[in-house]
Design a protein around this nucleic acid. Structure first.
Lengths: 371, 371
DNA sequence: GATCGCAATGTATGCGCATACACTCGGGGG
DNA sequence: CCCCCGAGTGTATGCGCATACATTGCGATC
């Protein structure tokens, strides 16, 4: 028996009654319109509009055994302990503005977020094209596992950034729904994956520095040890040197955390040495920009005194002065490709696991300009 | 009768059988653990882990009459017709990188997206804190109505940017679920809303220019006519002038579309005039940066020859040279506040409709520096 | 004119879970 | 010794929809 709706949200039953048809017909009008006679269809649609009927996603999902939604899960670099409530937001009398003499500059934007934003945009776009809704979640600390589990329960497929979910949990979830891993080749694991040509990009950039700029005195500023991106990039740099008979072991390697601050630190340490190298290759843009900050701040000229490069192609690398030579990753494409992989997997659950590797673009800019 | 699972996704029934209890007990273990004896609870949890059980969001949503998800809907400025498939992504042999001499600079990032990204981040954060999943959708062209409808069917509440959804549809949906409108005071409408102090911020900025910089020859570069943000900002500027006995009618107003390109256009038109004004107040940062581009490109000195200001406080305004004086909106807070409003509404559906107005920060930077 | 076939629609069921209600069991009070 | 009560658990049901299957109606076929 139908109960009275609390918030009077109409259901198929209401529409069916109003249109004088059965609920099956209402459902068909919405899902397979061609199965219904034109006149009937119109009559139903009139009722739908009249009642403001919106199908329940939950009921649809349950009956159809698919939710029509995909999940995107990213780690969050838990810098969010300082939150607390937004106090007195409602009807408070706090001043509506303040004046700030902002000569020093404001702190930079979050680090990883830029990456997330662009991937998300691509994923959202492609999800829309394929008719999926996109649910996003950003991991935080200990509850990450619960969050991703909850998400898994409400989507048809999961996109996760490499390293963002404990391996055992991922494996368990993979038994239940398809998973696409971003920024990591899935070696043998039962996941599809999307990567960019980290190796090739860094290889090409290094080759350019050695062959075209004729620079041999190089420092490499690396990222975190557990980052597959970092591993691949370093491998690209290393192989370029080795091919040219140089010993990569001789290169000094500073290790940072992919943050601008860690880049500044690396720059400061290099400045403390007796002599600067001729080129500083950084494993990502944020660190490259940090190095730039440190050098410029110390009066070093870039690129005249030192060449500096980054990796990623974030917008900020295009706005620094000098603009940062970098390797641009098609992040939006990463998101799109991931969704397409997912679509393929949903169409054919038995397909062999696949990996898409997207091309990168080496952008030669002023921070590496030499004649 | 239970059927064999296609993808062997275990259900409550499987867990119950495995643990030797009823499905009610399994459900209770997950939802109201204290209602179950400790020993029973543990036994069930063991089975849950063993089977890799993940509750179906659809079934949960249907039974509990709430999905536990919120929706965030943004307009997309349909620049996405040039899409097409990502061809041959799988196993193609296209070059994995390319070298680009990027001396000219690459095109800027999308316009509105920056706003979206930050609001999203705030919303996601707060949604997580409140235990909600967040589903996002970006509107595109004609199907916007369908997209937002579909979304409405799968969430407990909807956050929408002002003007992004046709009024009649929004009204219809509001009968079904709570709606929070961003960046627009809801005049009488049955929505809660979040805004920032556009008026006050622009008022303060204008006052600074007139009182502190003693500039009276001003041009205002406005945004689209249908933008409530633009309306409020202009009103703030206007009132500041009026208070000082100046006639706002005398100010030249250029109208742009909140894009950097339209800012450049405005700048170019001003350059074509016989004389430049002393200050150019722009209704947002993108246009401010565009004006900067045009002026600097023409050899005009900023701020020595002309003062330029923006509004929004996007990251790019902090990276330009000179850095752009602007009014910073707490965009992340907008997202968070919206979720908090939604939470409140869900707790008390009958509450009076509320509106949160967040404070802004006037950032005085080099583009308006005068002594 | 009886039969067949197909199009259009209706009837019945199950998706997986939450939960109201029924039930069991054991201890304390009468 | 019986009854009552509450903690713990089981049984039964409905959430709103999609869909397999049954039914109806009608023109075409012979």
């Amino acid at each position: 028996m139908r109960r009275a709706q609390v918030a009077n949200a109409p259901t198929v039953y209401d529409v069916a009654a109003d249109a004088g048809v059965s609920i099956a017909t209402v459902s068909r009008v919405l899902r397979r319109p061609t199965d219904v006679r034109e006149t009937t269809r119109e009559r139903v649609m009139v009722s739908v509009r009249k009642l403001g009927y919106v199908p329940s996603g939950s009921a649809r999902g349950l009956a159809a055994r698919r939710t029509g939604a995909l999940g995107l899960y990213f780690p969050g670099f838990d810098a969010m302990d300082d939150l607390g409530e937004i106090s007195n937001l409602l009807g408070n009398d706090s001043p509506s503005y303040s004046l700030v003499n902002d000569v020093g500059g404001t702190p930079e934007a979050h680090q990883h977020d830029l990456y997330f934003d662009e991937v998300l945009r691509g994923a959202e776009l492609e999800a829309w094209r394929q008719g999926f809704a996109l649910t996003v979640a950003i991991g935080r600390g200990g509850l990450a596992a619960d969050a991703v589990r909850d998400m898994a329960g409400r989507v048809d497929g999961l996109l996760v950034l490499a390293q963002s979910v404990p391996e055992d949990i991922l494996e368990q979830l993979a038994r239940r729904l398809p998973i696409v891993v971003l920024a990591s080749r899935a070696h043998g694991a039962p996941y599809d994956s999307v990567t960019v040509s980290n190796h090739e990009g860094m290889h090409a950039l290094t080759a350019h520095i050695i062959d075209d700029l004729e620079i041999f005195d190089i420092v490499y500023v690396a990222g975190p040890l557990d980052s597959p991106d970092d591993t691949d990039r370093w491998a690209g740099c290393e192989s370029a040197m080795r091919e040219r008979g140089m010993d990569p072991g001789l290169i000094r390697v500073q290790r940072g955390e992919f943050t601008r601050a860690s880049g500044r630190r690396a720059g400061a340490e290099l400045l403390a040495d007796e002599a600067l190298p001729q080129a500083i290759i950084c494993a990502n843009d944020q660190m490259g920009l940090g190095v730039l900050d440190a050098l410029i701040g110390a009066g070093i000229r870039v690129p005249e005194d030192v060449v500096v490069t980054g990796f990623d192609g974030i917008e900020a690398s295009n706005l620094s002065s000098p603009r940062l030579t970098t390797v641009h990753q098609p992040m939006e494409l990463v998101g799109r490709a991931a969704i397409q992989l997912m679509q393929r997997r949903l169409d054919d659950p038995a397909a062999e696991s696949a990996s898409i590797r997207l091309p990168v673009k080496v952008l030669l800019r002023e921070s590496s300009e030499r004649k």
